[in-house]
Amino acid sequence: MSGPFSESPSVQSEEHKDYEGSKLGMWLFLFTEIILFGGLFVLYSGYRAKYPNEFHQGGQDLNTVIGVTNTVILLTSSLTMAIAIAAIQRANRKLSIGCLAATILFGAAFLLNKYVEWSGEIRHGIYPNSPQLLEEPHGRQIFFGLYYSMTGLHGLHVLAGIILLSVMLTFLIRKRISSEDFNRLENSGLYWHLVDVIWIFLLPLFYLAA
């Protein structure tokens, strides 16, 4: 190919990176996530106002210990995520890899807890459209419908975060993320922290509301 650019290949090989723009793009995506979950929070509040007793009773039937344990797990995973970024900025690759791996493991532990929790409830016949639930009051059906859809959507976000962070871990190990170029790790961290923030709001709505 001939043209004005073919004469200076060195200009083409210089990769341009716009860190500020990429971070702003990540935040804009997070805004759509905030609005997505915000809509579900509005739905929850509306039905809670309509069925206060059923929602109160529903919250009592959930396992507070598992809910609080998962909160501690996610808060701690946010700490290890933040330290993973701070460490690679200081060119401490070993600490960064260790902390990012810990973050992924905490995420997996969260999902494992979720699995134990959900399978216990399903064994008791509480799941959307279950014969037992269909015979119970309407407000209770709505409470558990919201519980499964909101914590389920959040769980999918945790799963997506685990996959994203696993890719970042391979980048870190292969030195494609460095103290000079860690923007991808920082943006992934923003996503992980937002998933933590959403859980911070889900905890009082479902587990502490009784």
């Binding site: 946010s78 933040a82 961290g189 922290h193 937002l194 933590d196 923030v197 911070i200 709001f201």
Partner: peptide, 10 residues
């Protein structure tokens, strides 16, 4: 709590 995560972790 959410503010602490936003301001410091993020």
């Amino acid at each position: 709590k959410a503010g602490l995560v936003f301001f410091f972790f993020m």
